[in-house]
Design a protein around this nucleic acid. Structure first.
Lengths: 254, 254
DNA sequence: CATTAAAGCGTATGCCATACGCAGATAACG
DNA sequence: CGTTATCTGCGTATGGCATACGCTTTAATG
């Protein structure tokens, strides 16, 4: 991933979107005062997304919600894409409390993972936003900070800590997506999420009826027998496997 | 997630998009013959995405690429959204060879995970497509089949196998995203990926300079010391942690 | 051969992001 | 205290987009 700025000159300027997100643009003093703030714009956009879905988030919709002209928004945000970026950053909200002074890394990282999932469940539209790679926005960086705090003093090397944090957040994202889709289908057809799951398995059974899918058929047969498990237990299972794997390595080095 | 169709009546029809993806629409015999096939449309769309990015994929672009009118495409695909769905399904390509008769679950699942990453790297635009939840398209189902094949006979219960497969594919997706973003930034500014990584760390250093980010500063200091690691080694690290965690559970039950 | 239904697709609609430039506001400068 | 530079809000215009509708042509069925 390359090294930090060991000898990179300091005159490499921050890209505009990063400076914007961190509030580092130097506000000039010349012209009239602004009637809005970037935070207001972002908050309004989030409100629209939360209420009517990501597809309802248009510049004109946000503007009219704020009682200003559409083009005025571009005095606050260079493109809609940047706005989406800021929306996601803000909508994640505060991370769970960081690892306490006498707390082990494992419960702290578990809490961090649960926080990830909770955030995505609070604002499901975030899953539709194609995310933009390496985290650089303020709140994302704070989340990362908390994640790395959990792994301090574990003997894991830097790149290993990065991978571990990515492991947890990636799993949270995948899990959120899977369950959100079923929940959404359920809500749309006015059923319980459980019925939606049943329906999914049914469709899968139909399409795999002809053709070689032994493992999937085995799976479906078993799911039919097992008692209905809580969704969150299945999520915990994967999280625990990650934590076990990491713990194994840490212990083997101690 | 609900049980399969233990007693669900068989008259629940397949949604149109599922039938379409599986080629289960009954082609009527009345009218003129079609001049294209669904596969051709999907393949062309993929070609456009591969060549000029996802943003270049418009119905009119695909149509002109095929030498037909824009609206003709709607005889093959109900909406553009469905087309994107099929594009992703197809573009994943063939999964790696399934677990062999004398092969252990671990190398098989590792290979499956590598295949996930390789697919996303082959067609980076797929990461921008907001994916649609539970896998139901033919190729996705085949990938799933192979994933579950790897976990056959491990003593893992059905829901546990689901979580495990999700764990691996989710991590592959996260990793692909992180590295693709840096690679893309590198290509755009005409640098090596390593320089792009350096630049990222530099930006991170600047924005976290003021403020309480001890864990991130620690991380950056360490990354500066470590020799440049191969990206794929860092990826392998996370994958191995998953596999370790799963193996631990399997062994503890045996 | 008449009927029927589908295929290809031109046209039109309505939404979208956003480039451009103007008018009024505001602070800095002489 | 003007004058000037510069920023704000925003009306207007552009070009692209997905897609609804309905017409014409085609071809298999009765």
């Amino acid at each position: 991933m390359g090294e930090p700025d060991s000898d990179l000159p300091n005159d490499v300027p921050l890209p505009e979107n990063i400076a914007l997100a961190w509030g580092l643009r130097d506000r000039p003093s010349r012209g009239p005062k602004r009637s809005l703030s970037l935070e207001q714009v972002v908050a309004t956009a989030i409100r629209v997304a939360q209420a009517d879905g990501l597809a309802a988030v248009s510049m004109s919709r946000i503007a009219s919600e704020l009682g200003v002209g559409t083009m005025s928004l571009y005095r606050y945000v260079p493109t809609k894409h940047d706005l989406l970026d800021l929306m996601v950053d803000t909508a994640y909200g505060s991370p769970p409390p960081p690892r306490g002074p006498d707390e082990g890394w494992r419960p702290a990282l578990a809490r961090w993972g649960e926080g990830n999932l909770a955030a995505l469940r609070r604002q499901p539209w975030m899953q539709q936003v194609p995310l933009s790679g390496a985290p650089i926005n303020p709140n994302s960086v704070r989340w990362m900070e908390y994640g790395f705090l959990a792994l301090r003093g574990t003997g894991l090397r830097a790149t290993e800590r990065v991978s571990t944090v990515l492991l947890v957040s990636g799993y949270a994202r995948s899990w959120a997506m899977l369950t959100a889709d079923l929940a959404e289908a359920a809500a749309r057809t006015g059923q319980t999420p459980n019925e939606a799951g049943q329906r999914y398995w049914h469709h899968l059974a139909v399409v795999t009826a002809t053709g070689p899918y032994p493992a999937i058929h085995e799976l479906m047969a078993e799911v039919g027998e097992e008692e209905d498990e809580d969704d969150d237990l299945e999520w915990r299972f994967g999280l625990d496997r990650i934590l076990d794997g990491v713990e194994m390595l840490i212990n083997s080095r101690a």
